[in-house]
């Protein structure tokens, strides 16, 4: 396989990896504020894609109107989920919260099955479907859209966490919840915000990948699983690490499928993950010191 062949594989890896990365970012935001893994993250992705498909397909709305509506709807679902299931608990243990998110993911999946049925849906591409040729390799315009959206989401998040008061409050919560609440940060509201924000990011991921990956009610779990691997590999709680780790897993999978054998690609991706965690338990970009202070 020549240079353009390798480049093609890397493009494919970037396409797959960008999806993992975006799902992983959602995991990180909630983890940062609450210390829990939200296993319903993949369902937010599925809901975003499905609501978008309904708006575009059944309600016949243009893409640019459906997009914000779908994101808003999922954000609302995320916020409601937090208010109804997480917020009312007085002294929740981490384990209780995680089990609640698992229950919620089953509920979302079941609800989606009733609402949309068991069929697979597709969404039109945002622009043309004609592949773009770069140095002999081809890339779909939708992949360019996905990369663009990821860049925007990551930049906005970086700005939000570094430069705004609310973002700083969220980081304060992540560092030390009791101390943050002592200096006047309303921790409960920050938790609500974190769920809404990660639901919104999940929805964006679901919408932009639906044209190439298709969407059905069961998709959330598989996407969530791969996203979780990326989040762990990147160091839990580190959004930039999550995106980089997502690309890394995607590219490893693609190179393995293209150069070795597709039978082993999932196994190789997992072996890489295990190997990294063996050498660096805090992930590629996580700080070892910080990870010692966390519950897991």
């Amino acid at each position: 396989m020549g240079g353009s062949g390798i480049l093609q594989l890397i493009f494919s890896g970037i396409t797959i990896g960008s999806i993992y990365g975006l799902v992983a970012v959602g995991f990180d935001i909630i983890y940062n504020c609450t210390g829990i893994i939200n296993f319903a993250q993949g369902e937010f992705v599925m809901l975003g894609g499905m609501i978008m498909i309904s708006l575009v397909g059944a309600a016949d709305l243009p893409m640019w109107i459906s997009f914000p509506i779908a994101v808003f709807a999922v954000t609302l679902i995320g916020a409601l989920f937090e208010r109804l299931c997480i917020h009312p608990l007085k002294k929740p243990s981490i384990l209780t919260l995680i089990i609640i998110t698992i229950a919620a993911s089953i509920l979302f999946k079941g609800g989606a099955m009733f609402a949309w049925g068991k069929q697979t849906f597709s969404l039109p591409h945002f622009s043309s479907e004609r592949p773009i040729s770069i140095f002999g390799a081809t890339i779909l315009p939708q992949t360019v859209w996905i990369l663009g959206f990821i860049a925007v989401v990551v930049l906005l998040l970086a700005f939000f966490f570094k430069a705004t008061m609310v973002g700083k409050a969220m980081r304060a919560c992540a560092a030390n919840r009791s101390a943050a609440s002592l200096v006047g940060v309303n921790v409960k509201e920050i938790v609500l915000l974190s769920f809404a924000l990660s639901a919104a990011i999940g929805a964006v991921a679901g919408i932009i990948i639906a044209p190439i990956a298709l969407m059905d009610y069961e998709r959330g779990m598989i996407l969530g699983l791969k996203g979780f691997s990326a989040a762990v590999l990147g160091g839990l709680g580190n959004p930039v690490g999550a995106v980089v780790a997502g690309f890394l897993i995607g590219i490893v999978e693609a190179l393995c499928a293209g150069l070795l054998s597709s039978h082993y690609k999932d196994a190789v991706a997992l072996i890489v993950l295990l190997a990294v965690l063996f050498i660096r338990p805090s992930g590629l970009f996580g700080s070892l010191e910080a990870s010692r202070l966390k519950k897991f």
Partner: peptide, 20 residues
């Protein structure tokens, strides 16, 4: 002889091999 998983979103690597 190539395979793909039920959750896969891109099969270009496998198809690249077949194309060759």
């Amino acid at each position: 002889d190539e395979t793909y998983g039920p959750g896969d979103t891109d099969m270009t690597p496998q198809l690249m091999k077949i194309k060759a």
